[in-house]
Design a binder for these strands. Sequence first.
DNA 1: GCGGCCTTCTGACATTTGTCATGCCCGGTG
DNA 2: CACCGGGCATGACAAATGTCAGAAGGCCGC
Lengths: 202, 202
Amino acid sequence: MTVRLLLADDEHLIRGALAALLGLEDDLVVVAEAASGPEALAMARAHEPDVAVLDLQMPGADGVKVATSLRAELPGCRVLVVTSHGRPGHLKRALAAGVRGFVPKTVSAQRLAEIIRTVHAGNRYVDPELAADAISAGDSPLTSREAEVLELAADGAPVAEIAERAALSPGTVRNYLSSAVSKLDAENRHAAVRLARERGWV
Amino acid sequence: MTVRLLLADDEHLIRGALAALLGLEDDLVVVAEAASGPEALAMARAHEPDVAVLDLQMPGADGVKVATSLRAELPGCRVLVVTSHGRPGHLKRALAAGVRGFVPKTVSAQRLAEIIRTVHAGNRYVDPELAADAISAGDSPLTSREAEVLELAADGAPVAEIAERAALSPGTVRNYLSSAVSKLDAENRHAAVRLARERGWV
DNA sequence: GCGGCCTTCTGACATTTGTCATGCCCGGTG
DNA sequence: CACCGGGCATGACAAATGTCAGAAGGCCGC
């Protein structure tokens, strides 16, 4: 019994190479490839694969967004996410989106093939190292507004602009930033943004 | 006549897949693989490949640093850099380090094989799109101190800390930051850092 | 329904940044 | 040699930011 695969990754080099390698396994067959989020969705609808192997960072819509849509449209399609930068928060969000497997790109193709079979069999697989990171990083201590404001502060915008974009008073924005900074034990808002990014909380 | 290759990339998945695909070409043979900068250097010394295919972002030492060392130790070894995020400044630095080819990971393996041959023949190859970006981005308008201070400001450290780490007076640091911000036409130092990063100037 | 937490605001204050003018020392260039 | 640009500094001022206290409304759980 063969497993029908969808591969989605914006890097042609990797996608092609992966397709070739996985295709060598005689129980795996790559039925579709995509280079962006929307394309991955379209391909999934058209080919109804058994397992979708998605890169986390793609133009258009990231792996988690695609996984969410896929979950709704093709419940029978298992989703496996592959990523270069394993941030703890991403793992959490991916699992919440119904993703069945989460692995870093540092695994070998051989290993990936095994994991694809595991996922196809209905089991879950999460890279042990990433899982440990996610557990040790814990949950975000930020309230939703704090996270929202912090995100708006990410590109170095001044308070006035953040306030406008969040439809809040400037004073409130400063209060949220201040509490986020103290919760994250950062020196200032910019360090806070960096820390929250590292832990995948924004 | 076969071309002996060194592959260096920290992502096992990609490196392995690439090795397999390039190995299919009958005039290419992968003689060594590495997962980090230092390992790449060691492998190069041990196997003396004709062409080294290096990822730009690797633990230990990045592709450009490795290329520089390689240039000195193995002048006969051509260097080809492959990257996911094609920042204009990186291209410039890579060429300055004696790199013969610079391509994004969005090319196909087929295309990469051709480029390897091109580079091995002594020619240069730079991805046209990246070249266009590099030209339109122009040279960095920052003096070396401005760039240095901006880099130290990257993780959100306060002026006092930057001053200490750069062995400068706080006032001087602020002057440099101020001039960098105005040269980059940014709203504040943090936006300036972001812009400089995007253009590959830090 | 009371206590607790989140959201939202205001006002006040200390600190940090951003900006500008000005000055000195140095290495190169005409 | 005189001049200029870059590196480095200081001092002063305005603006932005960080911190704190206080207060009102909403929602949830007990």
